[in-house]
Nucleic acid binder design. Sequence first.
DNA 1: CGTGGTACAGTTTTT
DNA 2: CTGTACCACG
Length: 806
Amino acid sequence: MSSYNEEDAFEAAARPHSAAEPARGLSLSQRAMGHARPTAQMDYLEGLNTAQRAAVEALDGPVLMLAGAGTGKTKALTCRIAHLLNTGRARPHEILAVTFTNKAAREMKTRVAGLMGETIEGMPWLGTFHSVCVKQLRRHAELVGLKSNFTILDSDDVIRLLKQVISAANIDEKRWPARQLAGIIDAWKNRAWTPAKVPSGEQAAFNGHALDLYKAYQARLKTLNACDFGDLLLHMVTIFQAHPDLLADYQRRFRFLLVDEYQDTNVAQYMWLRLLASGHKNICCVGDDDQSIYGWRGAEVGNILRFEKDFPGAKVVRLEQNYRSTPHILAAASAVIEGNSGRLGKTLWTATPDGEKVRLIGHWDGEEEARWIGEEIEAMQSGTRGMTPFGLDSMAILVRASHQMRAFEDRFLTIGLPYRVIGGPRFYERLEIRDAMGYFRVVMSPEDDLAFERIVNTPKRGVGGKAMQDIQHMARSNGVALKEGARLAVEGGVLKGKAKGSIAQLLADLDRWSGLAGEAGIGPVELAEQILDESGYTTMWLNDKTPEAPGRLENLKELVKALEQFENLGGFLEHVALIMDNESEEAGEKVTLMTLHGAKGLEFPAVFLPGWEEGLFPSQRSMDESGQKGLEEERRLAYVGITRAEEVCTISFAGNRRVYGQWQSQLPSRFIDELPEDHVDVLTPPGLYGGGYGAAAPQTSSSFESRVAKADVYESPGWKRLQERSQQAARARAKTTPSQARDMVIDMKAVSSFGIGDRVFHQKFGYGEVMEVEGDKLLIEFDRAGPKKLVAKFVVDAASAGDVPF
DNA sequence: CGTGGTACAGTTTTT
DNA sequence: CTGTACCACG
């Protein structure tokens, strides 16, 4: 594959250095330790298990640390850094350690500092891939045609820029949305494809214009002195490839490399790492192929699977002792992940006692699932169910897609259960924050056209499309930035009336603020407040009567407060460009609601995993788009979900779910089949009807309609017949296994004795008439609810339902 | 220039 | 069913 066509060059660069095959592991590090005798400072080694210790002490040469979920990889990683420092093998600035998130970087810094006892000089090269690359790129920006003060665009800026590029190329933006192009370009950059390297087979997108648009976009970025996230890595790879001398410098500088979450690296990151490691090969990659869940964002599981080939003679250490979950939970997770092929393979084990089995329960529909989980959380909180009580903070609900959260939020609001949603819209992506940042950006860099465009008419200044066009024209024909173009337009009399006056005012304000920013006397907080007030931006929200306005003002206050920790606005802007995470950890006992992706790396005593249904989880879209690979990634997601649980893991599914307003009946997820029956308790009452913890009927009494339905259907002969039959089925089996529970549903679905024109009854939709029969699916025209497509098992014959009057 | 209407799409999101 | 994005109108 051409994505790796740089390897040869890489190997060539590596060869001169790779001669000595260093004695790896204990012997060498002990020799080194002979200098600095093991002291009290090396206590940390005592707290490690055998595998962790091996990973920590194998300092030289390539090491792959395969760290299963909950096996203490951060501990091993931080001890390794401490050990490098303690043994005198490296000084802090000689270690390059990269993570994906700021959170992970922060944690590592704190823990290393903790291990080293006293405060050591900071580790300047411990950070995220992106922050480390920014640092490098600022030094060598001129090598890719940028100035060292380049701005980093976020995805919103990128979209707006691409819209301009697309319309400039006379391409219909309707048919070819900028969003999609952004995705294509990002994917290319993730594969380390500069425009010159995009393979011809990949260029079909956008009517064959994608590559031209990519080129035009890169050109625009250069004129704007800007780059996007993908560029940060791609530019560094380009620079290192074109300047071997510079690369050699960095290879000498960074004597040891450490990489966290290696399974999530994309091709560009991989190449950047290989280039830097090619000299000494002192690279330690930590990861878990079973937890690779970011393939759709360009991550290549192949990177970790290929490690031993990439780095011949690599030492592979498996961390398999799990310190997080009970044996039942581990067994369930292991059995599910077993279904994947091409794994490196690990066997997790634990010394903790058995505990609860993984619990499985089916429900009638999504609302009932939410209702049951709400009640179960309350029950577990007060310590019924024969378990010790769980605090709300120790429980989490992990969903596949964020829209699933809605049912839970609705339910929790009505029963007054406190919850917190993790991973909503991010602080720095909020409209008001981006607007404020736009002002700061223009003040700090008057050539930032994207920021200027954003704020020029916010708040409304009477600058519309026409005025903007004039300004753009003026700027382009004079070869200056928009702000300067605006000035020329005002002075040259191009702008008239309202626009002229307000732009003149804005320009004067901007100049004044820029002047203030250069003065020593004024702090960033004061300056920011002045900008927001004098620009009229604060007033704009004060006058806004929509319900969001107060919250937005709150956010602005928070933004200003965040400035307190910075010396100047410039430093703040750099920080924000790379720190996009959600800081706000609201206090208070609350249940956590988040996506499976968001939960990676976290753990909770009790975890609920709802929505295990075909199409939802595994997601239909993943499977449609990526086939078997997609399915395997979904399975890894299931593995991640289960392994978040420490003590109790509860999986559930619903037979019906509203999808885009349409009711759809669901099949239980195939992953449920893969759960090992010996480690699972099926809570689902036989037949699934009504669901609930042994309850036959739903307890909802929220509406008259549902009460009617309940009174009606649950007393009906048809219902009783179904109950009876499923109870027989249950009696026939000693106990229900997960796959039996699933089969039971499927079996029942297959029983469809209805024909066109039959009158039927559904517990939710009431009476209706069968219009079409398609296997076990019926198209029913309900008297009150309109047409619905349902699986036959969810309706009963109208006559039998009608036998019981209410 | 601002608003209301309609049309359309609609996973996961570390930086 | 919902949210948003764009277009036509006032």
